[in-house]
Write a protein that binds this DNA or RNA. Structure first.
Lengths: 152, 152
DNA sequence: CATGATTTTGATATCCATTTTCAATTGCAA
DNA sequence: TTGCAATTGAAAATGGATATCAAAATCATG
């Protein structure tokens, strides 16, 4: 009866011998419906609107769990704060990050990925993962002095 | 009489109305002669061998200063610790980072840079800076079970 | 449905890198 | 030398993330 994400969570928990709890389901629901990159703090604030009794620690723990379950991905950009993104399914992607309004745009580019492999090969290096982030001004913020924050 | 880096520092300090101090010169000298990426902690340990009275706070403050002076670049990789690299002159480069021994290899690739620009253009995004990191196993660590730590 | 072993939770303490505070010291122009 | 702003070192504060621990909740079992 629940949405797909929550079903996936239930499966994962059952498979790991972990328990299904109100908190875990609530946190996942809020996270998914937010539909954007969220820090643990932002997520906690959203969650508390629905269920004031859920604490920070539980949010942190749950997000780690969701990462293990493949339902969330941890991202840490320049500001040093870990943010989570909901990963419905698709593969790897990289990010454009607006330094003014915080907007995060995702992109994929196989040509770049291929070149990365060739660089690695030249250095006899075996790539396990990579991170590509482009920082700058998004279309909304170019040429503006002020802006409406999108994400903090 | 000093080396080039220290001369650059003196110029920068004079230009900013800041003072030349024993600590600042000592820290820069140690940093430059190390010739590799160093965290503030690693650098402090090295500095203390020469001059035990220099504290952490001064190292942090000085490295921030050197960054402003263009003599150092801050880098923060996945482990969340800020490291500094001495930048003699050359332009931008990216990194291959060994997840086993911590070795850091620098590389440049204009093709990748060009593709980044095209991605940005498609998204009407103005790039100010970027970060590309490839994590994996270096040539020494491929096929090994254990390794000799290079950094940390 | 009651039991009880095992998990989970929430509040709080702790960790760790970095920054700030502040009184004492130092650099340097006059 | 003197005077004052800049700098320093030690220690406290900060901030995000993790660990601790007693109380509460889950859930297989009887």
């Amino acid at each position: 009866m629940k949405n797909k994400a929550n079903e996936q969570l239930s499966e994962f928990l059952a498979g790991q011998g972990l328990k299904s709890t109100r908190q875990r389901n609530r946190i996942l629901s809020v996270f998914v419906s937010a539909g954007r990159h969220l820090s643990a703090e932002e997520l906690t604030l959203l969650v508390k609107k629905t269920d004031a009794g859920i604490g920070y620690a539980t949010v942190y723990r749950t997000m780690k769990l969701l990462s293990e379950a493949g339902l969330a991905h941890e991202r840490r950009f320049e500001d040093g704060v870990t943010r989570f993104e909901y990963n419905a399914s698709e593969g790897h992607h990289d990010h454009l990050i607006c330094t003014r309004c915080g907007r995060i745009i995702e992109f994929e580019n196989e040509q770049i990925e291929a070149l990365q492999q060739s660089v690695a090969k030249k250095n006899r290096f075996l790539v396990q993962s990579h991170k590509l982030e482009l920082y700058g001004l998004c279309s909304n913020c170019r040429g503006k002095r002020k802006s409406t924050p999108d994400v903090r």
